[in-house]
């Protein structure tokens, strides 16, 4: 079993995981009800990956996400209101309504605009890390990608560059066993598509239970230390599973029922809650209080976002080029 964090950190992590879970659930219903425009790729079931990896980052460290960004963004500190308003296409959205569900992010808190091109964020993260290195800053960047992204050319090119230049980047593969509807076993001959390839670049790699937030956090701590210390990149492959379909249209009929059961039984949020209770890091009452507060924050954010103004239509023509601010 992993070393337990202190109470404050443990509750902080739980708070974030619960926030992500409830946020995604609420978004799901808003879509089903036809209230929210756009598309969704949800991170329900993968909360431990986001929180475990990002919890120890500093605000001025960075994070690069994918088409499935909500968990990462919330864990990196993008405001709930900013996220919710962006989903509704509102002016107060974290991208002023120009990003949408696949491009949420806010550089004010070190969350790059999420990237909806599979593998598109990998070289960009290398560039961010190169800038840190050239500017002699001790910042790091955590770059998330899916199992499917490991088959992109950008994966190979980016890992190789990160390795030769010893960049302060942590490449985190959330291996949820599927890229959209395709099992990763069909598209990669390696059992661990990211970690097994690390040897090709001489990058240290680790395979970790991505549903155990404490294990993820332990791996993160090591990798962050390495990166901050100038020792270069790490590849972390997190085994995890999404609870819902790939996107809003996916009824998810390609996954074996016993596989789903195996993973659903290992629910990262519920499991961590059980750990908190069984180790007496928290009481049932404390957790209930946290949960209630989060649920009402989410209610508030939905209410706010629904009533918030849309952007001025002229803004559609602005920000094509940077005019200086």
């Amino acid at each position: 079993m992993s070393k337990l964090p202190n109470k404050e950190k443990a509750l902080g992590m739980y708070r974030q995981m619960y926030l992500i879970r409830k946020y995604e659930e609420r978004i799901y219903y808003l879509f089903l009800e036809g209230i929210m425009p756009g598309t969704i790729h949800q991170s329900t079931g993968q909360e431990a990956c986001a929180v475990g990896m990002l919890y120890d980052l500093r605000k001025d460290d960075y994070m690069a996400s994918t088409h499935r960004p909500a968990g990462h963004d919330l864990a990196k500190g993008v405001s709930l209101r900013g996220m919710m308003c962006e989903m509704f296409g509102k002016e107060d959205g974290c991208c002023h309504g120009k990003g949408g569900a696949m491009h949420t992010g806010d550089v004010e808190v070190g969350a790059l605009v999420a990237n909806a091109i599979v593998g598109g964020n990998l070289p960009i993260a290398a560039g961010v890390a190169l800038a840190f290195k050239m500017q002699k800053k001790d910042n790091v960047i955590v770059c998330f990608f899916g199992d499917g992204a490991t088959n992109e050319g950008s994966f190979h090119e980016s890992m190789n560059a990160a390795a030769i230049w010893k960049l302060p980047v942590i490449y985190v593969c959330e291996n949820n066993l599927y890229s959209a509807t395709t099992s990763i076993a069909l598209t990669c001959n390696m059992p661990n598509p990211a970690a097994d390839r690390a040897v090709a670049y001489a990058i240290p790699a680790e395979v970790v239970d991505g549903n155990d937030v404490l294990k993820v956090n332990e791996a993160a701590a090591k990798a962050i230390k390495r990166a901050r210390g100038g020792e270069g990149p790490t590849i972390i492959e997190l085994k995890t599973y999404r609870h819902g379909g790939h996107s809003r249209n996916d009824a998810c009929q390609y996954r074996p029922k016993d596989e789903e059961k195996h993973w659903f039984d290992r629910d990262p949020v519920k499991n961590f809650r059980d750990v908190l209770i069984s180790t007496q890091l928290a009481t049932e009452q404390e957790l209930k209080t946290i949960e209630k507060a989060i649920e009402s924050d989410i209610d508030e954010s939905v209410e706010y976002a629904q009533n918030a103004p849309f952007p001025q239509i002229e803004s559609a023509l602005a920000d094509v080029y940077w005019e200086g601010k």
Binding site: L122, A126, G127, A129, L130, A131, S154, E157, S158
Partner: peptide, 18 residues
């Protein structure tokens, strides 16, 4: 390296960082 995707991506990332 001869890695054009990386070359351009590194430009994008480093440029965003100033």
């Amino acid at each position: 390296p001869i890695s054009e995707i990386m070359l351009a991506g590194v430009c994008v990332g480093s440029a965003m960082m100033g």
